[in-house]
C-alpha cells in the first residue's frame, strides 16, 4: 500500500482523500452491503413468509389460494397443533432453565477463579464441540442414549438400573429407552445449546468489578447475600442473552426431535413437514410465526422484570 499511495496524484490517493473528506459517504459505502444483505435477504424473506401465512391451502385441489384469510392461523388453534406449540414451548423453557443452572457455576468459575491457562482450557472445552457437525453429535447421542448404549450400561453397572427404569416409566418424560423419550431429547438439547448459555454469562460476570463484591462484603453482606444482591442482578443481562439463544434455538429446531424421542411433533418439524411433503406452505408459514411471537412475549417480560436495567 505504501508504494501505491506514495505518488501524490495517484487515483488511489485521490480516492482516499475524497472519502476522508466525506465521512458520511464512507459510512454508507461500508454499511450498505451488510444492510442490503439483512434488509433484502432476511427481512424480505421474512415478509414473504408473513404474506404466505395469510393465504390458505385448498384441501381439494392442494393449491395455495392467494387471498387474504385468517383461516390458516385459526388452524393453529386446533387441538393437535396447540399440543405441538405447548410441547415445544415447555421443552424450550425446560432446556433454558437447566442450561442456565448448569452454565452459571462454570461461567462463574471461569470469570472469577480460573487462572489464564485454565480459562483458556475451559474456553476450548466449551467451544470444541462446535467444531464438529451438529448432525454427527446428535447421532452420537442417539447411540449413547440407546438401550444398548454406554449410558444405560454404565447406569446398570453402578447399580442404578432400577432408578433409570423407574424414571423411564414416568408419564410424558419416559419411554422405552432414553433415546426414544422426551428425557433423552431434553438431555441432547441441553448438551447442544449449553455453550450458547455459558459464553454470555461468563462475559457478563467478567464485567462485574471485584471491588463491588468486596464492597458488599465490607458492608456486612455474607457471600450468599452478595450473590443475590450484587452478582446476580449485574450478570442477569448475560443470563437473558444466553436464554434468548437456548430458547429460540430449541423453539426452532427440527432435527433433534426427528432423531431423538418418540417422533412427537415439534414446531420445527411441523414446519419442515408442512412445507415439504405436505406442501402446505401457508400453515408452515403460520407455524414459523409462533416462535417469533413467543420470543417477543419473552423479551417484553424480561424487560418488564428489569433484566436489562444493568446494561
Amino acid at each position: 500500500m505504501a508504494t501505491t499511495s506514495a505518488t501524490p496524484d495517484s487515483p488511489l490517493r485521490r480516492l482516499s482523500t475524497f472519502l476522508y473528506r466525506r465521512p458520511v459517504l464512507s459510512l454508507i459505502l461500508l454499511l450498505a452491503p451488510p444492510l442490503l444483505w439483512l434488509g433484502v435477504v432476511y427481512l424480505g424473506s421474512l415478509f414473504a413468509l408473513l404474506i404466505q401465512s395469510f393465504f390458505r391451502l385448498d384441501g381439494f385441489t392442494g393449491q395455495v389460494v392467494r387471498q387474504f384469510t385468517l383461516a390458516t392461523y385459526a388452524e393453529l388453534f386446533t387441538r393437535a397443533n396447540l399440543d405441538v406449540i405447548l410441547r415445544t414451548t415447555a421443552m424450550s423453557a425446560a432446556v433454558t432453565i437447566v442450561c442456565a443452572l448448569v452454565a452459571f457455576p462454570l461461567a462463574y468459575y471461569m470469570a472469577r477463579y480460573a487462572s489464564l491457562r485454565v480459562k483458556a482450557g475451559l474456553y476450548l472445552a466449551v467451544l470444541l464441540p462446535l467444531w464438529s457437525s451438529y448432525i454427527v453429535r446428535v447421532y452420537a447421542w442417539k447411540l449413547i442414549l440407546a438401550k444398548e448404549g454406554i449410558l444405560n450400561w454404565f447406569i446398570t453397572q453402578i447399580g442404578l438400573g432400577q432408578v433409570l427404569e423407574w424414571v423411564l416409566s414416568l408419564p410424558v418424560i419416559g419411554g422405552p429407552s432414553l433415546s426414544v423419550s422426551f428425557l433423552g431429547m431434553f438431555i441432547v438439547f441441553v448438551y447442544i445449546w449449553l455453550p450458547y448459555m455459558i459464553l454470555p454469562i461468563q462475559a457478563a460476570l467478567e464485567r462485574v468489578p471485584k471491588s463491588l463484591l468486596e464492597a458488599s462484603g465490607d458492608l456486612g453482606a455474607r457471600p450468599g447475600q452478595t450473590f443475590r444482591d450484587v452478582t446476580l442482578p449485574l450478570s442477569f443481562p448475560g443470563v437473558v442473552a444466553g436464554s434468548i439463544f437456548t430458547f429460540s434455538l430449541t423453539l426452532g429446531d427440527f432435527i433433534i426431535p426427528g432423531i431423538i424421542g418418540d417422533s412427537s411433533f415439534f414446531i420445527g418439524r411441523v414446519v419442515y413437514v408442512q412445507q415439504g411433503t405436505a406442501g402446505n406452505i401457508p400453515l408452515a408459514a403460520a407455524f414459523t410465526v409462533v416462535p417469533m411471537v413467543i420470543m417477543a412475549i419473552y423479551l417484553i417480560l424480561a424487560r418488564k422484570l428489569g433484566a436489562f436495567d444493568a446494561l
Binding site: P209, S211, L212, A215, P233, A310
Partner: peptide, 10 residues
C-alpha cells in the same frame, strides 16, 4: 471507601 468508589451500578 474504595479507590474506584465501587458503587453498585444497578
Amino acid at each position: 471507601v474504595f479507590q474506584d468508589y465501587a458503587l453498585f451500578p444497578h
